[in-house]
Design a protein around this nucleic acid. Sequence first.
DNA 1: GCCACCGGTGGC
DNA 2: GCCACCGGTGGC
Length: 242
Amino acid sequence: MDPEINLQDLHPKKRWRSELYAQFVLAWQNNNQLPAEGTPEKNVNSLDDNHQLAVYTPADASASDGTVTQPPQNQAGRIAPSVEAYTVQCSLCYKWRLIPSKEKFEEIREHLIEQPFVCRALYQWRPQISCTVKTDLQPDGSKLWAIETPNIPRPPPRWKRILKIRASQGTRFADVYYYTPSNKRLRSTTEVQRYLREHPNEADGVDLGQFSFKIPLLVKEKSLEEHTTRVLQDGRKRRRMP
DNA sequence: GCCACCGGTGGC
DNA sequence: GCCACCGGTGGC
């Protein structure tokens, strides 16, 4: 039986903040490490094969999203980074757990507030997992992290939600796009609205509430630790950091 | 000509 | 100041 935290005990604001720990890990300069096409990726430090984690890589992105076959380049020839892994922080022990797939991540994210993530939720993939197992990943200066908004709905069946990191860090660091079942790219709720109106055959059972164009908040690893510590101090002083 | 990408801006 | 939205444009 999973232990459960009592959300009622937390001040709403603190509760909100304490549940913010669904995060992307972004690989910033992974262009030198693109795995050969079709090669399963097993690069996650400190994990053994039993864990069978699939890390979200550029190669995976091209396979599952069908949107890119080559790393995109901007005018300067720089390769845009892409999301390398998805991780969620356990609401009990605060350790980071890698999520085996983007789809699973979206599933967790969708209900993160009502169902805070706990290590044991990964039981299906990692039978030995519990809060006593050491953290999957530690901020080590090699990655960029971005904090997701909790409770973003999963995209409708056959639709895909893509976070596209920009190659040049100008006004914003990423964009969210939705791809329709017929692979048309939409970039705002008004475009979604119009598309659904003009394609009633694809609009069945689909409504605007299922879409969110919110991009995650980019944070430096250092800030991430400070942020985490601060929230811990606010919310649960007696908990130990992983 | 198309479209992916990025910057600008208007509304809040 | 933030962010949702979309126009412009450069590369293909």
